[in-house]
Amino acid sequence: MTRIDAKFADLKAQGKKAFVAYVMAGDPDFDTSLEVVKGLPGAGVDVIELGLPFTDPMADGPAIQLAGQRALEAGMTLDRTLEMAREFRKGDNTTPIVMMGYYNPIYSRGVDLFLEQAKEAGIDGLIIVDLPPEEDDELCIPAQKAGLNFIRLATPTTDDKRLPKVLQNTSGFVYYVSITGITGAAQAQATDVAPEVARIKAKTELPVIVGFGVRTPEIAQNIASVADGCVVGSAIVAELASGKPVSEVLAFVKSLADGAHRA
């Protein structure tokens, strides 16, 4: 059982929904980013998604694209991202960390070496948005053999024919993308999301977590009420980009977490 599995089992036992927060590793710099990441559990975050900066983030909207650029310009690398996870683990051995990004840096490192390093650093799962199920032998299956969850995205365009393929080797949780398009593009609507979550849950025992378009405590509560939890990324990244102190960013995160946990 991974930390992700344990976390969702614990939340289920408490009758609570999950709040997942995404931050870009190294944005705006290593030290500030690490301070934010270390503060997330205390702000009510159940699972941390740690963005791996990449030069061509095709699924991301402007907020996360710019965060990646800032991180890269500040010297963030795959090694530094793993170092951030290691530093976090010195004080927290229970909060799951999911590394989210693109395949190129992992491919360049070499899958076996990357998985060994990720496991050692305390990474629990991977979301690699540009690897479809047809490429499961590349990373998904090796990751699961190494003891990491491989979390797949389902979208509004994942029809009933495609869904079983998407779910086939997924573990940890299913990330349902609430809107078509890029991150931060539109507002998620619970009325649209609810039937899609129900459709996915009819095909899997895994928790279904909804992301994209969740920006306020009210939306977090509404979306979490029709799923097993929600993810917020762009809104948190934008708070950090505005130059607010870490304490204010974490206060904003706590308001979102409180919203999700009210569901």
Rank of each mutant, 00 (worst) to 15 (best):
M100G: 10
R109C: 15
R152S: 08
P96R: 08
D124E: 15
I141C: 07
G68M: 09
E134L: 04
Y102T: 03
Q65A: 05
F88A: 12
Y175I: 01
G61F: 01
A143E: 13
V45M: 08
V45S: 09
L115G: 10
V36S: 07
G51Q: 10
V45R: 03
I97Y: 13
D159G: 12
I123E: 10
T94V: 05
P96Q: 14
A71D: 07
E87F: 00
M99W: 10
Y107N: 07
G44T: 13
F150M: 08
E35V: 12
M84R: 05
F150Y: 15
D160E: 14
L72D: 09
P96T: 11
L34D: 08
S178K: 02
D160L: 05
E83M: 13
Y107W: 11
F150N: 02
E49Y: 02
A121F: 07
Q65S: 02
D56C: 02
P164H: 08
G51L: 11
V174S: 11
G68Q: 07
A143Y: 05
E116V: 02
G75W: 07
T170Q: 09
L34I: 13
C140I: 07
V129I: 15
A146G: 10
P96W: 14
I97C: 12
F150S: 02
L153H: 02
L40R: 00
R109H: 07
S33W: 01
F54D: 11
E73Y: 00
T158P: 10
A71F: 03
D46K: 14
G61N: 01
F173M: 10
E134R: 05
L50C: 13
Y102V: 06
A71I: 12
G91V: 06
T157A: 10
Y103C: 08
Y103S: 03
V174I: 15
F150K: 08
F88D: 11
R162F: 01
L34M: 13
Q144P: 02
M84C: 11
G101E: 14
D112K: 15
Y175A: 01
A121I: 14
L167E: 08
E138G: 02
K38S: 07
L78S: 07
Y102Q: 07
P142I: 05
D56P: 04
D60V: 01
T55N: 11
R162I: 01
T81D: 03
S33V: 13
T94R: 11
A74L: 03
R89M: 05
A146D: 03
D160I: 00
R89S: 02
A63S: 15
A85L: 01
A67N: 03
P156S: 12
G122D: 08
P57Y: 10
L40N: 08
E73H: 12
A63R: 06
Y176G: 06
T77A: 03
A63Y: 08
E135R: 10
D160K: 04
T158M: 00
L139K: 00
M58G: 05
E35M: 15
K161G: 15
F173C: 09
E138P: 01
F54G: 11
M99T: 06
L163A: 10
I141A: 05
T180K: 12
T81C: 15
R70S: 13
E73P: 02
P41G: 06
L52R: 14
Y107A: 13
M84N: 03
S178G: 03
G44V: 01
G39K: 00
